[in-house]
Computed example of a mutant assay.
Amino acid sequence: MAYERIMGLDVIDDQEYQKYREAMMPILKSFGGSFGYDFRVSEVLLTKTADNINRVFTIAFPNQKQMDDFFSDPDYLVVKEKFFDKSVKSKTTISVHETEL
Rank of each mutant, 00 (worst) to 15 (best):
D73L: 05
T58Y: 05
R21G: 09
Y37V: 13
V78R: 10
V96M: 13
E4S: 11
V11M: 02
D38N: 11
D51S: 13
V56P: 06
S90I: 01
D14V: 13
K80F: 15
S72K: 09
N63E: 07
Q15G: 13
Q64E: 15
Q64C: 09
P26E: 06
V88G: 10
A60V: 05
H97I: 12
V88K: 08
N54R: 04
V11L: 02
E43I: 07
F57L: 08
K19G: 03
A2K: 15
N63H: 06
V44G: 03
T99A: 14
M67E: 10
I94M: 08
I12M: 09
K65A: 15
D51T: 06
S87R: 08
E81W: 02
I27A: 10
F84R: 13
A50N: 12
D51R: 07
D75K: 12
S72T: 14
F84S: 07
Q66T: 13
Q66M: 14
V44E: 02
L77Y: 00
T93M: 15
F31V: 02
Q64K: 14
I6W: 05
L9T: 02
T92R: 01
P74Q: 02
H97Q: 15
D73Q: 02
V79C: 01
F84T: 11
G33P: 04
K65L: 15
K48Y: 10
I94E: 03
S87M: 00
L101Q: 13
F39Y: 14
D10W: 08
R40N: 00
K82V: 01
S42M: 08
V41L: 01
M1T: 12
D51W: 05
L45D: 01
K86A: 15
N52F: 00
E22G: 00
K80W: 12
G36E: 05
F31E: 02
N52I: 09
L28K: 04
S30M: 02
M24A: 10
E4Y: 01
D13K: 06
I53V: 07
L101C: 05
S42C: 09
L46M: 12
K65F: 10
D85C: 01
L77F: 03
